[in-house]
Design a binder for these strands. Structure first.
Lengths: 150, 150
DNA sequence: TAATATAGTTCAGCCCGCTTAACTAAAAAG
DNA sequence: CTTTTTAGTTAAGCGGGCTGAACTATATTA
């Protein structure tokens, strides 16, 4: 199945190129914003999952609860997070993005996808048509894959 | 130009799906490997651009020359980088990946793109053909974009 | 050749992220 | 009601990343 090998290789290349780019873009954005990668990871997590507790965070970040506590503390200080007591279980905390926190993430998404417009400008109509057919297929396949656990 | 808007939106979606995935995957991979994000950034840079000097690195990482020097020093200690004197200008250094360094990056790519095989299996031959035409176009466009400063 | 500019390195000092260990407080189990 | 478990915090200590400042060595310029 030589075609399958080829397409795998193509996808790998695309991911590689894309990953290198987004890596760099992230690093720069965060640096100017004065946020660390782990801090950003927490904000992203909360942006996607909504409010959660400390243990969720330490689990997700694969870090000790002490580390999570400190990380969250700094984000609370910067008013990007809100940390309140869980009324159901007063040992637990509820962590959530503040308005500032949400705005920060949304800005970062806009920032990182700016180059996409640049990219689109460089394509001929023919090329665009090609990509407009192909990308939805990929997107759907990824979504199906994510749906089925694994 | 409704087509351009649409394709921009498609690319954005792809970024969203992929970015959340890759951020977390990276963090985990680097943690187990004991490498920091900036260190990884340098390796990636060298992987894509080949050998370069200290000032390239401090420029790319947007960091002082002192910081670059220290970062590279650690990577040399870990035998991921090689640092030699430039025979043309003995003030300058030539930095390059060692075999270990190259292998490290390649492993990280393999690791992060393992799900690609999964993805490829879910595509029909027809869909594969579509993607095989479209992806090279995108890849080339990105490379041209990177080439032309901006 | 003397003056200056360039490429990196080293060092002190700061902040951050992380871990382990000791702790507080509340819930669950007995 | 006492014991144990669970959720999180605090503190000490390590190492990394970063900066500015002082320094070395080489190249360039006048």
């Amino acid at each position: 199945m030589p075609e399958s090998i080829q397409i795998t290789e193509l996808l790998r290349q695309w991911i590689d190129v894309f990953a290198a780019r987004s890596f760099h873009d992230w690093a720069r954005y965060l640096r100017t914003a004065g946020l660390s990668m782990p801090q950003f990871g927490i904000l992203m997590h909360l942006y996607h999952r909504g409010q959660c507790g400390m243990s969720d965070i330490s689990g997700r970040m694969e870090v000790s609860s002490a580390a999570a506590s400190q990380l969250v503390e700094r984000l609370v200080q910067s008013s990007l997070l809100e940390r309140t007591e869980d009324p159901q279980d007063r040992r637990a905390r509820q962590i959530a993005l503040t308005e500032d926190g949400r705005k920060f993430i949304e800005d970062s998404i806009a920032e990182r996808s700016r180059w996409v417009e640049n990219l689109a400008e460089r394509l001929t109509d023919e090329e665009k048509a090609l990509i407009q057919k192909a990308l939805p297929v990929l997107l759907e396949a990824v979504q199906k894959m994510d749906g089925k656990a694994k």
